[in-house]
Amino acid sequence: MEPALIFDLILLLTLISLAWLLLASTDLFRAVVLFIAFGLLLALAWVRLGAPDVALAEAAIGAGISGALLLIGLGQLGSSERDRCPVRPLTFLQHLSAPVLIGVIIPSVTVILLLELRQLQVVTSGQQGLVQNLLSISGSDHPVTAVLLNFRAWDTLLEKGVLLLALITIWSLDQARPRFENTDIPPLLSGFGQLLLPLLILFAGVLLWQGGYVPGGAFQAGALLTAAMLLATLSGYALPSRWTGVALRLVLVAGFLVFLAVAAITLLLRGEPLHYPQRLAGGLILLIEIVATLSVAAILSAALAGGHPVTNLPPAATPTTKIEDKS
């Protein structure tokens, strides 16, 4: 057997067993570390699948941010919840459904799919040829960027909406709490932060810029900036409270709003949303990408903070009439 094939098989087996171990783990911290390892190996899998764009995003999110997010979340749980998953007594149906699901349905669906997938004759030449033919007028030299920001920009616009929506959801649930002790920061850590922050920002810029012709782009760059924000927070920096009002909200929505505005203007002038004029396509894509990078970074950082910024409620919000409890 070829070493590459063995590599893929081992990677696949490790990924599946990792997934199983982390689902079955009753120790939450162990599950988090397994998840971090899972992210690492998933990035390798994307590399093996020939999708470096996804691998870049998975590396930035999986290695940097989701691990930190879960660790922070774990720190917020009470110690009894943290050590063990609460085990609830199962009803009869749940007792029955778990073995049926795990023992019968999932394996049989998997086996059927694997059998069927052998018949799959992947037809990509048509689409790829089409993308390559139109690449020159798309405003980007990298096919992935051309698809994401021109050919299927409508999808990407809505995906940016998903990201913003996720943040609004987080804000609607809770207010941000301090996640880290701000005293006693080891001097080594601040030095490390000072060394790494400029590099992270620089490399985010590189990723953003090179998205025009090779793998990279707004999301990957934004994720790196988020890691920079996280490191800054860990080294004891905090956003001044006067910036957490409208200014912060503007940065959060800017990526989606600019994209939406481009859609609205093109719809108004050309009758189709996101139908860029050919001359302007490159410039528009760059504009959208730059603003999106900042917004992605802000949204992911705000998600790490875990809630809306603590502000003084405006006078209108103070309860003037008592309404009886509805529950």
Partner: peptide, 13 residues
């Protein structure tokens, strides 16, 4: 009919 982005269908939406 109109499409999003103004590209024909296998490519656009």
């Amino acid at each position: 009919p109109i499409t999003a982005g103004g590209w024909p269908t296998p490519l656009g939406i």
